[in-house]
């Protein structure tokens, strides 16, 4: 019953979001775009860290690469915007293959640090590319922006629906994966890697595939984020704070290893930001303190605790044995 109510609430939220251009002002739309992009980033980090146990603190590598590849494709390659998005995602995933090959030699904390170092290397490389403005970055030519819509408001609408599609792809994609046979394996890896391996799950292959897929979708989100900003610089594109720290915060407070956790976490994160944005540094310290408190009190996060106590599930992925 409670599940049904929550599901109805989710359906209503999706409907409201689908119709947002009808009721939201320009500033609200901008905020919603950011919320939806963060939801996509959080779902990807959660799929990676929450299910395969690969704690990456280098997600900014994929956001930055996606953004830079998108700018390179549209500015230097003359590729149309809507072709540049999937291409940037695909190329980011392709780059994740050799990157993963290096990162997977490292275990645990070394893997985490390794991903960060790799992201730094990508940032330094991006700053060397003169054709894309080097260290000071580059703006997207007006012609490229105008190619999606003539008017300013038209562009806002198109961008909004790109963000909406991104979030839907991320949430629905994760849900479909988790409900599949492969999802069974990923959930098993989440709970015990050694046991999953012992019942025939090729954990290495699953982890690598998830690493590459999440890199691609994170790259797609990066392409969108910098298309929306119309400007990219190495520091903004490869920011560990914006694209990894906040995302980890969202997933940890919301509930790692659940599909609902990142949704709850994203809502909470932006609610807090709206309230406390003026607090400056105190706000960031508060976020950190809250994340640590969650880990100490109940490391399953808000949704994890709710799910454990009341058995609630908005997007169920479990399979029952019928009587």
């Amino acid at each position: 019953m409670a599940n049904r109510i929550l599901q109805a609430l989710l359906a209503l939220t999706i409907l409201a979001l689908a119709l947002a251009p009808l009721w939201a002002g320009r500033a609200d739309l901008r905020l919603l775009m950011e919320v939806l992009a963060y939801l996509a980033l959080a779902q990807m980090w959660n799929l990676l860290a929450g299910y395969t146990g690969l704690i990456s603190v280098g997600q900014q590598a994929w956001v930055g690469l996606g953004g830079y590849l998108f700018f390179a494709l549209t500015i230097l390659g003359g590729v149309p915007v809507f072709a540049a998005f999937p291409l940037a995602a695909l190329l980011t995933a392709v780059l994740a293959v050799p990157t993963g090959w290096v990162a997977f030699r490292l275990q645990g904390a070394y893997f985490a640090i390794g991903t960060w170092v790799i992201a730094e290397v990508y940032r330094l490389v991006a700053a060397q590319v003169g054709a894309l403005g080097g260290g000071s970055g580059i703006s997207l030519p007006v012609a490229v922006a105008k190619s999606i819509a003539e008017t300013r408001m038209g562009r806002e609408y198109v961008m909004y629906y790109i963000a909406f599609a991104l979030a839907v792809i991320a949430v629905a994609g994760v849900w479909l994966i988790l409900r599949s046979r492969w999802g069974l394996a990923l959930t098993a890896i989440r709970d015990s890697e050694v046991a999953a391996e012992s019942v025939g799950v090729n954990t290495m292959r699953s982890k690598f595939l998830i690493y590459v897929i999440t890199a691609g979708l994170t790259g797609l989100t990066g392409a969108f984020l910098f298309f929306q900003k119309l400007r990219i610089t190495p520091d903004a594109a490869f920011s560990v704070n914006d694209w990894t720290a906040f995302v980890i915060f969202i997933v940890v407070i919301g509930g790692i290893g659940t599909i609902e956790g990142p949704i709850i976490g994203t809502i909470l994160f932006f609610a807090l930001r709206e309230v406390a944005a003026d607090w400056g540094t105190w706000y960031l310290m508060g976020l950190g303190a809250l994340a640590i408190a969650v880990m100490l009190i109940d490391k399953r996060g808000l949704w994890g605790a709710i799910h454990a106590r009341w058995g609630l599930s908005i997007l169920p992925v479990s399979r029952n044995l019928p009587d």
Binding site: A196, V201, S318
Partner: peptide
């Protein structure tokens, strides 16, 4: 080493 977040049935289903 049970898969603690899954049901007993799902534990076997993985296998």
């Amino acid at each position: 080493h049970p898969f603690v977040g899954m049901s007993v049935f799902e534990n076997l289903l993985v296998a």
